[in-house]
Design a protein around this nucleic acid. Structure first.
Length: 227
DNA sequence: GGCCAGGTGTAAA
DNA sequence: TTTACACATGGC
């Protein structure tokens, strides 16, 4: 069982996931508009340590208040932005991070130009509130650039399949994955989403799985994929 | 009521 | 370098 085999099994079983959700719908788009890229970036910040349904509520709140755009958020005060995103949790912190993002965006003509910056990953990582997962999510799903996203699910799932240690460093796991699957944006996007799909599926189907998604003794994931 | 969710920054050992 | 903790809402 190597990474490519796991990817193919997941794709066969769960079908393409079409991340990132745009306007609440899961659909893969090849040509994203500036507005859609912006929404994905905001979603990447909002989803920090929070489940997606809470993020969707905040995105809806922003949309309902006609505030899901660079121009509006750029003019909003942090204290006026926070109430619009409460349901995502950590709203004060995230309001600050979102304002940091729009301030940073002023350095560019638009988001597409920002993603053309060869140093964009390091630039974003230098901003407060922007860790590796948030930045790579923006680069992969909004920028459509080949940066593999590592999250807690990725570590846990790959560890259960014996492909890495549970406590592996972000950079080390990213390097391992990138070395072992084709360097294609589509595959990076799908593989990451499929890993999350497996974790959630197992958790829902087998709630007796010690309440921990793919806990150490979980054999359900492997049985679902007939491995 | 308790646990967890597609993390990050900071401080102290 | 590792560990602990603050940040906070919503679903089950």
């Amino acid at each position: 069982m190597n990474l490519t085999q796991l990817y193919k099994k997941l794709l066969e079983h769960y079908k393409p996931q079409g991340w990132w959700p745009i306007n609440g719908a899961y659909s893969r788009k090849l040509n994203l508009t500036e507005e859609e890229k912006f929404e994905i970036c905001i979603g990447a910040i909002l989803t920090q340590n929070t489940n997606w349904s809470n993020v969707e509520q905040s995105l809806k709140s922003l949309r309902d208040n006609n505030s899901l755009s660079f121009d509006v958020i750029n003019d909003l005060k942090e204290k006026d932005l926070a109430p619009l995103i409460t349901s995502a949790g950590f709203f004060n912190q995230k309001a600050k991070t979102i304002k940091t993002f729009t301030n940073f965006l002023r350095n560019y003509k638009n988001i597409s130009e920002m993603f053309n910056d060869k140093e964009i990953r390091n630039q974003l990582l230098s901003l407060k509130g922007f860790g590796k997962e948030t930045v790579d999510s923006m680069l992969l799903y909004a920028g459509q650039l080949p940066y593999f996203v590592i999250d807690s699910y990725t570590r846990r799932v790959l560890a259960r399949f014996g492909l890495c240690d549970e406590d592996i460093e972000y950079t080390d796991l990213q390097e391992f994955i990138v070395k072992n699957i084709p360097k294609e944006v589509y595959i990076y996007q799908e593989f990451h989403a499929l890993i999350v799909a497996l974790a959630k599926d197992v958790c829902v189907k087998y709630p007796d799985c010690e309440s921990c998604i793919l806990n150490k003794n979980c054999k359900y994931g492997k049985s679902i994929l007939k491995l």
